[in-house]
Nucleic acid binder design. Structure first.
Lengths: 193, 193
DNA sequence: ATTAATAATTAGACTGTTCTGTTTAATTTG
DNA sequence: CAAATTAAACAGAACAGTCTAATTATTAAT
């Protein structure tokens, strides 16, 4: 028999709350209230708010990477179509969320990436992990002559990554997916052979 | 003779501090300390922290729009080269800043754009203002057959805008302009005819 | 198997600091 | 002298984190 609470439940609450409300805008008490655990238990599991946030980032970063790997493994489409359908799926998820949260790792990276070194480094590490999932798919697409070869797979992966997050961030204030859809259309028209 | 302090000095301090450290991470006391004014004077000029931040956003948003307009007016390059050199200039400025702050309006839009409506709306308004500076230049480039015509000037403006901010945000955690430079190269190769 | 000892977890009151914003009085300007 | 501004003490709430005690789970001994 385990104890009453477990870390993962608290991390999941942290994920949702941080993603929607940011880091400095969220107090520990909000995490406690949402997860129903008392303060003593929280500080038994986590050293500090910063340590907690780092574990939240790591949990989401790794689970998102698994999701990406699984998506591309299971996809029966060609590389470029597979990539496009991946972004379309993420965009659908964001629409269902009413464009409220965006990506936790990107939000954290922007808000505290330069002020809290550990959190910035964690965010960057997961970005690199995700890019390393994209690059081999792009490589395949290039070898199949679906995707332009003027740039390396990693360069194009960064290009997709940056463009997508730029477009995603626009949805936060426009509350519309219009330009995110256009981003997808333009990007995949431009990188195809 | 005016009084001892004026709003613009305080707004400039707010610009620098908010840009580098965010909104919720910055207390009024930090603004007071940096600008050397007492609390009473601050609340004489501004209704609240939120009101202050909104005026900071508006001042920077408008001044950046003027800077853009002036840049393109004075540029002797062709439209597409003019656009590219504009982004190169902004990238240089960001490098000189050691990738520490990024764009105030974008940062605010990301951190509080969805939680503090007034600030989100202000950020979005300035984004639209900037896009409306870019679009006519893109239009000219299309008419000169320098730029692809498959997408409208506004669509391409959003594409540049989103991609640039995505690439810019990457510099915050990588502390390197490598992929920002690659973004510039890829983007302008892809949108040229 | 039961019990005793130990370790981990739960619980929430409490601390000291920082937060935004208020208030009242002094000072400066037109 | 009247209005605007300056000045800083003050208030109340929220903040991250600590502390002591209680309960619960695990391990060791019998």
């Amino acid at each position: 028999m385990g104890y009453k609470y477990n870390k993962e439940d608290i991390l999941n609450v942290g994920y949702e709350v941080f993603r929607k409300n940011g880091y400095h805008n969220v107090g520990i008490n909000e995490i406690l209230k949402e997860s129903g655990i008392p303060k003593g238990s929280f500080y038994n599991f986590f050293e500090s708010k910063e340590d907690f946030a780092q574990q939240v980032i790591n949990q989401y970063g790794l689970s998102n990477q698994s999701l990406m790997e699984k998506f591309f493994e299971e996809s029966s489409l060609t590389p470029i179509e597979s990539l496009k359908s991946f972004y379309a799926m993420v965009m659908d998820m964001n629409e269902q969320d009413n464009y409220a949260g965006g990506c936790l790792v990107n939000n954290m990276s922007m808000e505290v990436g330069r002020n809290i070194d550990n959190l910035g480094a964690a965010a960057n590490q997961h970005f690199i992990g995700w890019l390393n999932v994209l690059a081999p798919i792009i490589d395949k697409g290039q070898k199949l002559e679906e995707i332009i070869t003027a740039y390396s797979p990693m360069e194009l992966a960064e290009y997709l990554h940056a463009g997508f997050y730029g477009a995603l961030s626009r949805t936060k204030v426009t509350r519309s997916r219009v330009y995110m859809d256009i981003w997808l259309d333009i990007t995949f028209n431009l990188i195809k052979t």
